[in-house]
Design a protein around this nucleic acid. Structure first.
Lengths: 156, 156
DNA sequence: CTCGTTGCAAATCATTTGCAATGGA
DNA sequence: TCCATTGCAAATGATTTGCAACGAG
């Protein structure tokens, strides 16, 4: 809608720096994916990023988007969100929060979480089975506000 | 290992009854899938169920397994577990518990959860965005005991 | 006989693999 | 030049669709 095209995106630069530090290359494809990913306010899927990016920059394959997002996850700059069996979504927010996933429109809504995620499950019990938890996630499936009102209109 | 073949499985009968009550049919394919699903102690994928069942009963397509598991989920007799982007697993345990998912071997471990799942996220905050949560899930990704010891043997 | 239900083959969609091209040392 | 890294086309794997056969009323 507005001139969303060329904001400097300081975070993109910092990510680029990290990639260079690791001895990896900062290529136009990677930057295009990273910029698009950081700019969005939703939780885009690979396909969505691919579509937006390939409009402006046609040298781009879907698998490159996969590669780049996987790299971002490795760097801790993105989090995978499996939106209920369907397409995987990616979230640039890395802090403690959880996800509300609409089972109808597949939208993912962020929700701040009171307290630490680890605390959500009993550490003693986890210990007992010898499991080393790296990441604890809390998600709720249900209907978002829009889909709720649509559902009540058309008698399901 | 033992004669696991023909236990009566009271729960299978009760599910069959529910299906009939809904005016749907209790077919051999469905019963084969349901029996196999309830008998297993792991959290089988569609593919795993398909393989076991089609050994004994060759009139069986993978998509029928999908159909039947979807029906079980609808009946509240199964729960989908998306084991980290890969194949979906199904859990016959319906009570309050959470899942530890090994990112290496994809094994899913059940863990009793102290307290109610809903309580894990702030109801007030959920309300504020107008979301109607149906099911709250808590999962941890990490390494199971076996994969941990294997990993430390071979220098990752 | 009729019409909703079922099972399945084939189609589709998401993701991974393998390899040719690239570019920094 | 050399070799690790990159991007991508093609392959694979998971899931859905569409439709022929079935069976209860």
């Amino acid at each position: 809608m507005s001139t969303a095209a060329r904001e400097p995106e300081p975070r993109a630069n910092s990510i680029a720096a990290t990639i260079r530090e690791r001895g990896q290359r900062v290529t136009p494809q990677r930057m295009a994916v990273i910029e698009e990913f950081l700019t969005r306010r939703d939780h885009p899927s690979v396909e969505q990023i691919y579509r937006s990016v390939s409009e402006r920059f046609s040298m781009m394959a879907v698998s490159t988007v996969y590669d780049t997002l996987r790299l971002l996850v490795e760097l801790g700059e993105a989090v995978e969100v499996s939106a209920g069996g369907s397409e995987t979504r990616y979230d640039p927010l890395t802090g403690d929060h959880c996800h509300l996933i609409c089972t109808q429109c597949k939208q993912v809504i962020d929700l701040d979480m009171p307290g630490d995620a680890e605390a959500k499950l009993s550490p003693a019990a986890v210990e007992r089975v010898g499991f080393a938890a790296e990441r604890v996630i809390v998600q709720a499936y249900g209907l978002c506000a829009q889909c709720r009102s649509t559902a009540s209109t058309r008698t399901s």
